[in-house]
Amino acid sequence: MEYNDEQRSLVAAVQDFCRREAGSREQRLALTDAGRENHSPELYRKMADLGWLGMALPEEFGGGGAGMVDLCLFLETTSKAMAPIGGFTTSIIVAAAYERFGSPEQKKVVLGGVARGAIEAIAMSEPEAGSDVANLSCRAERRGDEWVVNGQKTWCSNAHLAERILLVARTSGRAGDHSGLTMFQVPTTAAGLTVSGIDTMGGREVNDLYFTDCALPADAVVGTLDAGWRQLMAGLNLERLILASLMLGTAQRAFDDVVDYVKGRRQFGRPIGSFQVLRHRLADLATEIECARLLVYATAAQVDRAPNTVLPRETSMAKLKATETARRVTLDAMQMMGGYGYATEFDMERLVRSSIVSTVYGGTSEIQRDIIAKTYGLHEVSRDSQ
């Protein structure tokens, strides 16, 4: 993939910033409450001031109007630097939904806010509806001039940091139907909403949301009533490529770190990187990373050429390849580092944790494989139809 001068300058600027502001482990621990948080408001504000958080948003809302390739470069670079800006991922996904479907006032508030450093979250998953989005049961009912929400959401990333949550709730039909889903704008300060953190290996990242007679104004609807499923599908290109780009950066960071380690670590009188078994293993990992990078950026370029075209096969392939590659690279790197790869005083164990969960969120690897297979006309056949 060839990049233009502006893109190369962007990568160089982001690398330099991250090196100065979060280049050492000590700096990152200070910014993240000793690693318990994945987001630093201080670092995020500085990036907002530089215009990077709104780079892919329209200029009329304070953005830079950049394309998907540019956004992927920013994401890969910040991920490789381990910059603690976890709030950016959900914010840019939510902003894209408002850009497509929001009212003029909603766009002004949300898109302008994201460009200035506000954090947004999106709530889809429920205890009985993860990969099966059609099974959503959290319901919003119209009562006079309001919508009243009752139900539970789970695994909601960054809700504890966000100003607003983009809620996907059922407004008609029954669980199991893709129709009857609607998007709502919910302030995190809304009465009747409780945000409860879920402890995970990654620290404070995700939350349970409990809605108890949570009243929203009539204009809280984002887009078209009962069209939430279609609106969700329109954002798949962005979401999958964002996650793929992040894991490219994670894989590259793990690879670079383990290469440095095997060059310096000596056993039996020589660097362990000189042993053929490790040299060949690292050659394979480098090849896999480059394959993933070519796929991600080729797909991003395709999105830039046709922004309104949904690419289920290509984006699922990119997400699948990048996340599975990151998992393989980090786990192999941990093993090559031995006990040091497992110790919390080194970065590798955190890279492992990040890569493992990437094959779950945003559609599991199994879901991505199923989507890819369906694009080739391969559908599951029930026994009754055989």
Rank of each mutant, 00 (worst) to 15 (best):
E26P: 09
T189I: 14
S79E: 02
G202A: 14
L111Q: 02
A300V: 09
A162L: 09
I93G: 00
L295G: 10
R350T: 12
E288R: 13
G223S: 00
W229C: 15
T315H: 04
T78N: 00
Q276F: 07
A306H: 00
N4D: 14
Q386N: 04
P104W: 00
Y297V: 10
L167T: 08
W147E: 10
L167S: 08
L209T: 07
L294N: 11
Y297Q: 11
N135G: 07
Q252C: 08
Q15D: 14
R313W: 13
A121N: 05
G151D: 12
R36C: 05
A175P: 12
V109D: 14
A134F: 12
H178P: 15
Q302G: 02
D304A: 06
G269A: 07
M201V: 05
K319Y: 09
L50E: 15
S79D: 00
G54Q: 03
T182E: 11
Y3N: 08
N158L: 14
T224F: 11
K321A: 15
G180V: 10
N158E: 15
E60Y: 06
T89A: 14
D16I: 08
V277F: 11
A175V: 11
F88T: 07
T171H: 03
G64L: 04
G363H: 09
A115P: 06
A96P: 00
N4A: 07
I272Y: 03
V258E: 03
H160E: 14
F184C: 04
I371K: 02
I165L: 09
D304W: 06
V94M: 08
A56H: 11
L31P: 04
Y98K: 05
L331Y: 03
R293N: 11
G113V: 03
S24A: 02
T194H: 14
F211D: 06
T325G: 10
L282I: 13
L53C: 10
P104D: 05
A283W: 02
G117K: 03
R265Q: 15
A322I: 08
G235V: 02
F88K: 04
F61L: 08
A118H: 12
A333S: 12
R100V: 07
R100F: 08
A81R: 01
L225N: 06
V14I: 10
R281V: 03
S125W: 05
F61G: 04
N207G: 11
M201G: 05
G54W: 03
K46P: 03
I367F: 09
T90P: 09
A123F: 07
A322M: 07
V110H: 12
D284A: 12
R240L: 04
N207A: 13
L285H: 09
R170L: 14
G23E: 02
F255R: 13
E288P: 01
V310Q: 13
V109P: 02
L238T: 09
V11I: 14
A97V: 00
F88L: 15
A283F: 10
E6Y: 07
D219R: 02
G269C: 03
Q267W: 08
R240D: 11
R279C: 05
H280T: 05
A318N: 12
E163R: 12
C138R: 10
D219C: 04
A244D: 13
T330A: 11
R142N: 01
